[in-house]
Structures are given as structure tokens and as C-alpha cells.
Design a binder for these strands. Structure first.
Lengths: 202, 202
DNA sequence: ACCTGAACACCGTTCAAGT
DNA sequence: ACCTGAACACCGTTCAAGT
């Protein structure tokens, strides 16, 4: 039983059934095996999860040369959007990313490329570190909050904002037509604010 | 058994032992009761969690009059910081906030105050909605990633960034002294970027 | 009416026993 | 050497039986 097959099956399971569906029992069953076999390849559930997480980071394809040829603003934007796209292809995996700072090879490579762009653009090391931290936290923080079946939420929430007590929630009612804000709009809006803010401190 | 006592005990449990420690069994035990008793007051675990969450939002004390007397920049900053402070007083509760959009009375009140400030400052309804969404998402996204015992992480991570392969991770090594970025620095940095960005689109 | 023990169908993890 | 069934100590939720 190659570890890669276990990780692939785990990712499939999480994608299809959600993060909570990844139990050692269910996974073993899907592989026609027993739970104890999984523990031959991974010390515990957490270690297996770390591999699933880094597999998703492996889907973030950044072209270092292309990024170097653009303004740092455009580069930052495309790094963030590329990461966001990968996380959105596996929305159920995002909540598995909360437990540990990612140190898998793929996550390391992304960080290296992004920091290179910032340093080569003339940002001082401590500023580059802060910018990378802020951008990666923005992506993950956003993706996580996106992950719990968004379309069901949206439909329910839209009504909830309109059926609020008018005397108590004047402002909420005034913006009810605009709520909930579509997620892609919100993502782009916040990202734009961050980059506009960065341009000011440059 | 008043529901308030159940929620208070649940919050204590989560604060002290973490979100995962909140099991119906453990909670019932702490109350010298049985699990089935809890189900008399809450339909399921999710509903109980929603009450715990809104209890924390209840610790966000915003002074509507004071906020109205400041620039919208300062008001936004103090709303975000006040919310962040409350979430940091109960870091283990943040991951319980992922499952549903908060519609508890306390969360509703906070949203109403914040939207009032934005509308009264002349922002159009759809822009106000977007700004509130972005700010509240920023706070929660940040607080969630903060929640997993931060000091343990930081110590471990600082070393990990320094012991990286120099030929492969030139940029990472160059900023290693600045990593990991202290969380309060990172929080203020990102918030500042957002508000600077907002000033530009005003 | 309100509470409860015991049950049901699940977990992560371990370990002796099999091939 | 590698795999596995069965066990251990847990889950959320339900329900018949108690007061």
C-alpha cells in the first residue's frame, strides 16, 4: 500500500464528503483495508492530514519567471488568486489547514517564490515577511469561511436579513439587498484594499 | 436546569480545554447531569454551540455614541479591535464560529452598529455591506488562525525557518529572523492596510 | 412534566495474532 | 516484514423507564 494512494483516497474522501468524513475507519474501508494498516504509514491522523494539505498546496502552480516580470502589485495579486483557486478546488480541505503552520515541501516552495518576488522588488526582509504573512492569512482565512456549503448559506441568509425587526435594525435593513455579499466580490474587494494599502506604504 | 447555566459551563469548558473538549458527555458530567438532559434545552450540539458563540459576541461592548463622534476610519478600527479582543479572550471558541453565519442577538447588534456608522459616514449601502463583510471576515479569519496554541507554534516555527536548505530557500532564509511575524504586529499591519485601502476608494 | 441510564452506531488508536 | 480483527476508551443522539 503506497502512501500516495492513501493520501489520494483521503483527499477524494474529504472533497466528496467533507472534512469530518475523513475517519481512519472510513478511509481504511475505501482502500479495502483496516485502520491499523494506515498507522503503518502515518503516525496518526494529524500526520495524514498534513500530507493531504500539502497535496493541495501542490496544485498551486506559480511561474517564478512570469511573476518576476510583473509589478509586485500584479505578482502579489496573482499569487493570492492562484492560492485561492487551489483552495476553492478543495474547499473542504481548508479547515484541515488550521491545525499547523504548513511546512510540507509544496507550501515551502510557494512561500519561497512569494518572498523572492517581494525581496527582489526592494521590500526590506521584515516588511516582506509581514506582507507574506498577511496575504497568506487572508487567503486561508477567507477560504475557510467560504468552505461550509456556501450556496445553502447564501439563500438562507438573504432572507434572514430582510425579515429583521425594522425598528431595531434600521441599518441592517437598509443594506439587506446587498447581503450577503457574493463571495468572489468580497474576496476581490478585500484583496484590492490590501494591495492599495501596500502601495501607500511602499 | 436553566439554559444559561449550560451555556456558561460549555464556554468554561471550551476556554479551559479547547473546542474539541466540548462533548455532550463531558458537559453533562460537569453539570452533574446526563446527556439527555442537555437535549431537553437544545435540539443538538450545533444549537448549543450557537448559543456559546453569541455569548462571546455579547462581550463585544461598542459605544454607538462614541463611534458616531469619530472619523469612520477610527470607528472601523475600534470596532475591529474590540471584536478581536473579545475573540482573543476566548480563542478556543473561534473555530466554533465557522459553521454558521452568526444570527444571535448579540451578533446582530454588532452588525447593526457597524453598518450604522458606515451609512452615516456617507457610504452607499452596497459599499457599506462589502466593508462590513470584509472587516468581520478579517477579524474572524485572523482569530481562527491565532487560536491553536500560538506560543508553542511560534517557538517551533522560528527554528524551522532557520534550518532550511540555503540553496533551495534563499529568500525564506533571508527573512527567517523576521519569522514568524508576531501576531499582534501582523494583525495591526493587515488592519492598517485595509483601512488605508478604504481611504483610497472613499 | 422533567430527568436519567442504557443503548445505538460511530470515533482515534493499539496490539496480539495471523500470513 | 507486512497486514488485520478485535479491543479500548471515547463520540452524538435517542428512548424507554423512572420520579
Amino acid at each position: 500500500m503506497p502512501p500516495g494512494r492513501i493520501v489520494a483516497a483521503a483527499l477524494e474522501l474529504v472533497d466528496a464528503q467533507g472534512a469530518d468524513a475523513l475517519s481512519m475507519r472510513t478511509l481504511a474501508q475505501q482502500l479495502n483495508s483496516g485502520t491499523a494498516t494506515l498507522y503503518r504509514h502515518f503516525a496518526n491522523r494529524s500526520e495524514l492530514v498534513a500530507h493531504v494539505v500539502d497535496h493541495v498546496y501542490g496544485e498551486v502552480h506559480l511561474d517564478a519567471a512570469e511573476l518576476a516580470g510583473q509589478s509586485w502589485q500584479r505578482s502579489c495579486e496573482s499569487v493570492v488568486r492562484t492560492m485561492y483557486a487551489a483552495l476553492n478546488r478543495h474547499p473542504n480541505v481548508t479547515r484541515l489547514m488550521l491545525d499547523h503552520t504548513p511546512f510540507g515541501p509544496n507550501a515551502m516552495a510557494i512561500r519561497e517564490i512569494c518572498l523572492s518576488v517581494l525581496l527582489d522588488s526592494g521590500f526590506a526582509p521584515d516588511l516582506a515577511a509581514r506582507i507574506y504573512a498577511t496575504l497568506s492569512r487572508y487567503v486561508l482565512g477567507f477560504a475557510i469561511q467560504f468552505s461550509g456549503n456556501p450556496e445553502a448559506h447564501a439563500a438562507y441568509d438573504a432572507e434572514a436579513f430582510h425579515t429583521v425587526d425594522p425598528s431595531q435594525f434600521r441599518a441592517t435593513l437598509a443594506v439587506a439587498d446587498a447581503m450577503p455579499v457574493p463571495l468572489d466580490v468580497e474576496f476581490s474587494f478585500g484583496l484590492d484594499l490590501l494591495i492599495k494599502g501596500l502601495s501607500q506604504i511602499r
